[in-house]
Design a protein around this nucleic acid. Structure first.
Lengths: 139, 139
DNA sequence: TAAAAACTCTATAGTCGCTATAGAGTCAAG
DNA sequence: CTTGACTCTATAGCGACTATAGAGTTTTTA
């Protein structure tokens, strides 16, 4: 059963252009072509694209996904590398959550500096933004 | 007191190229030039760049910062817009934290599928990544 | 004083993961 | 047989930088 790119897009929940982009990036192998030069995809492509999209939904980068696909294509290897990649990814996610929570605390404290509407020149928020406290800044 | 771009970079904790980029983007006004065509910055530029860097450290986009700078340059206006911009930013931050926590839960459950090192073809993680459960995917 | 090192200049291309556009070709239904 | 939906390639744009090349300027060192 061979399907065209539009059907593959619907099945996988991503855009036609994105599929062509994955092909250009070497994540999806080049499919067969019809007489009119349309791409024809088979089950192998469908499953592989779903794998890619699932990884993307987990916020993995395309180069991480490239690595996982490479591992997947060599099934006799040890899967310790897969675990390691995932562990790194989990740790990065935790770090980003921490950074964002810190950021939010900072934003909330800034927001408290202006209680109501007044003139810009008296606004505590803008004044708070001028005071420099970020790393590397020697003001 | 006029300083050159390298000193401004050190003071503000950002790179020389970034300062030139901000100038090109209209966030920093064009500075005076020395006889040898070097940029010469004054206190006004220093303070403005610190404002920009502080906003960036709060993860604001350059267009948000452009708006804040515009408000700052018109001090007679009402500062309700500043508050509104910040409120939107805080809400976006909360949403991103929520999304990342969800993501982390997903990654952790995936990680549990592989307890130790075995052959790739038996690895529960890669199999978990093939099962498709993300929105829009009809697999 | 001259050479070397450090700094600055402009202009251009690359990063990532797409998204958008233009202009042409292919195919199925009315 | 024409309309409309689909597909093709190639190219440019997004945001916020980063990197590079090649030239000019200033400061330090010998």
């Amino acid at each position: 059963m061979e399907i065209r790119i539009g059907d593959l897009a619907k099945r996988s929940g991503c855009e036609v252009v994105t599929i062509r982009y994955y092909e250009k990036e070497g994540l999806l192998p080049k499919p067969a072509r019809s007489g009119g030069n349309f791409r024809l995809y088979s089950d192998v492509h469908i499953e592989r694209l779903q794998f890619i999209r699932h990884c993307r939904s987990l916020d993995m980068t395309l180069s991480e996904i490239r690595i996982l696909l490479g591992l997947r294509d060599n099934p006799a290897q040890d899967c310790g590398d897969v675990n390691a990649l995932l562990d790194v990814h989990i740790r990065q996610t935790e770090e980003r959550v921490e950074a964002l929570l810190q950021l939010k605390r900072h934003l909330l404290s800034l927001r408290e500096k202006c209680s109501g509407a007044r003139r810009i020149e008296a606004c505590g928020i803008l004044q708070g933004l001028s005071d420099c406290d970020h790393p590397g800044c020697n003001a």
